[in-house]
Design a binder for these strands. Structure first.
Length: 192
DNA sequence: ACCGGGATGTTCT
DNA sequence: GAACATCCCGGTG
C-alpha cells in the first residue's frame, strides 16, 4: 500500500481519471476502492467549475496538483475531486463511487440511510458522507495526508478496458464522454 | 422496478 | 432570481 506521489496528478485530468480507477481513497483508515470517476477542466471544458475562471469557490482547482477540491451542491451535499494538471489549467477528477472496503461500521454509522453496503459509497455525495469529507477539507493535501485523506495504490491495476460514458448531472459538457468506471462493478452511482 | 418531485443553501448572473 | 458535478422518499406497476 503506497500513497500516490505528486507527479501522478501533474497530468491531463482524463489521463489521471482512468488511472485512478482501482486506487484506494482513504480517510483515517476508512474508505474503499475508486470504481467511478469523471474528468473536468483542462482544455476549455464548459462542464467544469473552472470554466469561467478562478473564484473563491474553485480556488483549489487553480492551485497545485495532488490536493482535494471539495464543493457544496444542491444545498445539502459535498463532493470531492483530486486536483491535477498545472495551475492555470485547473483540471480535476471527481470521485463518483467507491467499493467500500475499510471502516465499514463507521461508514454505516455516518450514512444513516445506507442500509445495504452498496448504498454506502455509490455516489459522489454518498462517499463524502461515508468518509466524513466536507467543506473544511477543501485544499487537503493528498500526498502528505495532512488531514488524514490520501489516495493509495495497493497494486491492483486499473482496468485494461474501463467502461466509458458521458458525465452525469450536467447541462453543459454532456457531449464529451469523460466518465469512466470499473466494468461490472456493483457500487456505481448508476449502472454502466 | 421505475419514475417524479422536494429538500436545501451557496454561487453566480 | 436561477442554476446547481445529488440524494431520498413515496407513488405506481
Amino acid at each position: 500500500m503506497r500513497v500516490i506521489e505528486r507527479d501522478f496528478y501533474r497530468r491531463d485530468p482524463r489521463t489521471v481519471a482512468v488511472e485512478l480507477l482501482n486506487k484506494l481513497l482513504l480517510r483515517d483508515g476508512r474508505g474503499g476502492r475508486i470504481v467511478e470517476v469523471e474528468a473536468y477542466g483542462g482544455s476549455n471544458d464548459p462542464g467544469s467549475h473552472a470554466y469561467r475562471g478562478p473564484t473563491e469557490r474553485n480556488a483549489t482547482m487553480f492551485g497545485p496538483p495532488g490536493h482535494l477540491y471539495v464543493y457544496f451542491i444542491y444545498g445539502t451535499h459535498w463532493c470531492c475531486n483530486a486536483v491535477c494538471s498545472e495551475g492555470t489549467e485547473a483540471g480535476a477528477v471527481l470521485v463518483r463511487a467507491l467499493a467500500p472496503l475499510y471502516g465499514l461500521d463507521e461508514m454505516r454509522a455516518r450514512r444513516l440511510r445506507g442500509r445495504r453496503d452498496r448504498d454506502l459509497c455509490s455516489g459522489p455525495a454518498k462517499l463524502c458522507q461515508a468518509l466524513g469529507i466536507e467543506g473544511a477539507d477543501d485544499g487537503a493535501d493528498l500526498v502528505t495526508g495532512d488531514r488524514g485523506i490520501v489516495i493509495a495504490d495497493d497494486g491492483t491495476p486499473s482496468p485494461a478496458v474501463p467502461g466509458q460514458s458521458p458525465r452525469i448531472g450536467l447541462s453543459a459538457g454532456i457531449t464529451t464522454p469523460w466518465r469512466w468506471y470499473v466494468p461490472g462493478e456493483p457500487n456505481l452511482s448508476r449502472p454502466g
